[in-house]
Amino acid sequence: MKIDDLLPQLFPNGYDIAFDGDYFAGQGDGVAVIGTRDRAAIGAELAFRMAGEVLRICRDHPGRPILLLVDTLGQKMSRKDETICLNAYIAHLAKCLDVARRRGHRIIGLVYGEAVSAGFLSSSLLADACYALPEAEVKVMNLPAMSRVTKIPLERLEALSETSAVFAPGVANYIAMGAVRGLWEGDLARCLQDALAGQDDPDTDRRREDGEARGGRLLACRVAAEVRGAVPNDAA
């Protein structure tokens, strides 16, 4: 969905959001909005701007919930960005979101366009809860590229992706694996209000439990639990 169509549906009472290139920020109905459009590549400057907006919200509007609307094809592929350590800029954004969360700002992510790899890692995957529109695209890599890199025939990957949520692109797979909590359909303003009314403990990451309950990710929960409470193996 285009951002111009999305915003009026999220905020039927009006909003005040300023666009600058592929970046935008502002507020609607007392909810802070930070986002990108047009499949933005997340480079150092964009991550820095988003982080700065998170810090500004913490300072100027304590407790105000934050809605992340990030449409991204992934990280910016750039030698200059890598030279100044692009990953440090993306990590900085992640730290800012986490500090905001711990200062009482509820953080909701909505994938309304594309969410790919590091662009997804640095935005909606850091929210308290991440949602998606049905037409959103979520992925690491498409299957033909994956086939080239892994040298596994495309037909094999296509056949397996019918039964496995583990590697093929698609919102449904990310819901099954617990990373996307659910789809927003119909009355989007209502969906937003419901999400804002929810509660998540900043120290509890429930995505593994969701993934297991939904049958899309069967090992992560048990493996992490075993390591968390493992009996030392020198007992034998």
């Binding site: 995957l125 890599m141 994956m146």
Partner: peptide, 10 residues
């Protein structure tokens, strides 16, 4: 990449 979605979420 062989388990791309699971790896990204992990």
């Amino acid at each position: 990449l062989h388990e791309a979605n699971a790896g990204l979420i992990a």
